[in-house]
């Protein structure tokens, strides 16, 4: 492998092992996306020839793409990983959706609340996330071992110093650490690694003709049809792919011909816009990612 990716891989494996050694009940947040796929492969590598010594947890909002759910139910099991799924049933029963509640309240119930409940129920003291520092400006500030108080909240003004690769894993009961083994990876590194390692990812990342609602520059997936159609609007076939995966109402597709990892990489190099741009949720207000993260979102 090329030296740069090899160094990133070695660092991530080191982080994964530190957590397994220092915490009683770690869990890996599995979001089914490309970063989770890379993180999962790194976990396989870290504990080979043993099994991954912690479960995966998917927080299911019920608004995920069908293709994501199919992938989730197939791939982790095929490599012997244990997957747990948690949904905020009560909120769903009360009809939570981004149109009715607004994206920020919807996320807060179906993602943040659900996540915090799942972590508390499982008694997990460390949770891995696949976030990268190059994704977003508040993520650029995050430690690799990021402390959370007993309410699962982040205090970005008062983070523990983190020098070298000496990670402080000390916590009191009820507190936890979020761990980000991919902190130093870029979007390009992730695709490059997926390519050379041949890591399976959800097919939605690859371009193909799909039915989309075309509204100005935005391609809205019609699945889980909560977004009301405007008069005369109906889904039409578009050659497109997803650059990042989330809930269908809040994730737009991009027009693209890139149907292989190398073509995606080529496309990335031409991009002048960030990968989170077609995510509606980061944009609803200035600093919204930070606010969500403070509340306990990943």
């Amino acid at each position: 492998m090329l030296s740069h990716l090899r160094a990133l891989e070695a660092e991530s494996i080191y982080i994964l092992r530190e957590v397994a050694a220092e915490f009683a009940r770690p869990v890996m947040l599995y979001s089914i996306g490309k970063d989770s796929s890379v993180m999962l492969r790194l976990a396989q590598k870290a504990f080979f020839p043993g099994n991954i010594p912690f479960p995966l947890l998917h927080v299911d909002t019920t608004y995920k793409f069908g293709e994501m759910i199919r992938f989730r139910d197939w791939y982790p099991r095929s490599i012997g990983a244990e997957l747990r799924v948690h949904t905020n049933r009560q909120a769903i029963a009360e009809g939570a959706n981004p149109i009715a509640l607004g994206t920020s309240r919807c996320c807060s119930l179906l993602k943040t609340r659900a996540l915090l409940d799942a972590l508390a129920e499982g008694g997990y003291d460390a949770a891995f996330g696949g976030a990268r520092r190059d994704e977003e400006k508040s993520r650029a500030k995050e430690r690799i071992f990021s402390f959370r108080d007993q309410f699962g909240q982040w205090d970005p003004k008062n983070q523990r110093p983190e020098l070298w690769s000496l990670y402080n894993a000390r916590i009191d009961k009820g507190q936890s650490i979020r761990v980000f083994p991919l902190s130093n990876w870029t979007e390009l590194d992730v695709w490059h690694y997926i390519h050379i390692e041949n890591i399976p990812v959800v097919p939605l990342y690859f371009a193909k003709v799909r039915e989309m609602i075309v509204r100005n520059d935005t391609l809205i997936p019609p699945e889980h049809n909560v977004i009301p159609l405007l008069p005369g609007e109906k889904p039409q076939p578009v050659m497109c792919r997803m650059r990042s995966l989330g809930c269908t109402p809040c994730t737009g597709a991009i027009r693209s011909e890139a149907d292989t990892a190398p073509k995606i990489i080529e496309e990335l190099l031409r991009f002048r816009r960030s990968e989170r741009e077609n995510r509606i949720i980061d944009h609803d207000q200035e600093g919204s990612m930070e606010l969500k993260k403070r509340e306990g979102y990943f």
């Binding site: 520092r133 190059d134 977003e136 400006k137 508040s138 650029a140 500030k141 970005p156 003004k157 983070q159 902190s183 130093n184 870029t186 600093g287 930070e290 606010l291």
Partner: peptide, 22 residues
């Protein structure tokens, strides 16, 4: 503002914690 990504940093006009940029 490209690296001062926290709200408190923007409000106070100072950097509080390290930002990593590639």
């Amino acid at each position: 503002l490209l690296t001062d990504g926290l709200r408190a940093e923007r409000e106070q006009g100072i950097t509080i914690d390290v930002a990593y940029r590639h």
